[in-house]
């Protein structure tokens, strides 16, 4: 049985680092919601009756051990997979299996655990790819892109947010791993998403760079007006520092859905998710 936050739960003593601005209205309807979702791969049930909701102003982390169903849940939330049972809603619309292109145009963006770039495109072209979608210019067959001031402005803004301004003319494959990760996320931000799903955004990044990358992402999210962030992450320090709410999955079920202070105060949950108490060294 999952441990749900109570309605009179006290707010976190300190505002999480990357939280988007809180909504002005009380209890807004969820931006993204999974209702009693099950997902089977053949005989294997990857998700079992999972219900989650993410509202405007939330920074929600999804955690869990390997094989808990995190990636399946993210793939369902981004419309890539169709649930075996249950529904997934984005801004009140059922998005089961609609595909990433439709979601990208409706205001949802996603990044992947393994860095995804366009090796032969420059940094500017990579960001412009999303900006072209956002500005509805994808079918302009004969208008020269280099002379498009709107696209150029948006590319410069996004590159500035992610500290990539000096690398605009660099081919993506020539960037450092940390820069590639930032570019991956920057291109998603260029869609002006309302919701962004970050699938282990610091994987493959050195420990020293992790917090810098995460701080850049959080700052960019605030500056870009992203309404809600869903983070899939193994690093509990990052989860603790940035989340307003933590959803723990275990064996395809929701184990907990709690604010960070309650989540980290529960040794049973911590042991299930990370196999040891946080902060206890081996």
């Amino acid at each position: 049985m999952s441990r749900q936050p109570t309605s009179n739960a006290a707010p976190p003593a300190e505002e999480p680092k990357g939280a988007p601005p809180r909504p002005t209205e009380h209890a807004p309807s969820p931006l993204i919601e999974a209702r009693s979702v099950c997902k089977n791969y053949g005989a294997f049930r990857a998700l079992e009756n999972v219900s989650i909701a993410v509202r405007e102003g939330e920074f929600v982390s999804i955690v869990g051990p390997n094989g808990a169903g995190k990636t399946t849940l993210v793939n369902l939330l981004t419309g890539l997979l169709v649930p075996t049972k249950g529904e997934v809603y984005f801004k009140g619309r059922n998005i089961a299996g609609v595909g990433p292109v439709t979601l990208a145009t409706q205001g949802m963006a996603r990044t992947f655990q393994l860095v995804q770039i366009f090796p032969e495109l420059t940094v500017a072209e990579t960001i412009a790819t999303a900006a072209v979608t956002r500005q509805g210019k994808r079918w302009r067959l004969l208008s020269p892109l280099p002379q498009d001031a709107e696209i150029a402005t948006r590319v410069a803004e996004i590159a500035g947010l992610f500290g990539l301004s000096s690398r605009l003319a660099t081919l993506s494959r020539l960037l450092s791993q940390g820069e590639k990760k930032l570019l991956d996320v920057a291109s998603a931000f260029a869609l002006d998403p309302q919701v962004i799903l970050l699938d282990e955004p610091t994987s493959g990044v050195s420990t020293a760079e992790k917090h810098a990358v995460m701080a850049t992402l959080a700052g960019a999210a605030r500056a870009a007006g992203v309404q809600a962030i869903i983070l899939v992450e193994h690093d509990m320090d990052l989860v603790a520092a940035y989340s307003r709410r933590i959803i723990a999955l275990s064996e395809g079920r929701v184990l907990a859905d709690l604010p960070p202070e309650k989540f980290f105060a529960d040794p049973v949950i911590i042991e299930t998710v990370v196999g040891k108490r946080r902060g206890v060294s081996c």
Partner: peptide
């Protein structure tokens, strides 16, 4: 060119 380089990433950017 974006879909040539990485079709999955391109789809998530609305291509």
């Amino acid at each position: 060119r974006s879909l040539r380089d990485n079709a999955q990433k391109a789809e998530y950017l609305g291509v």
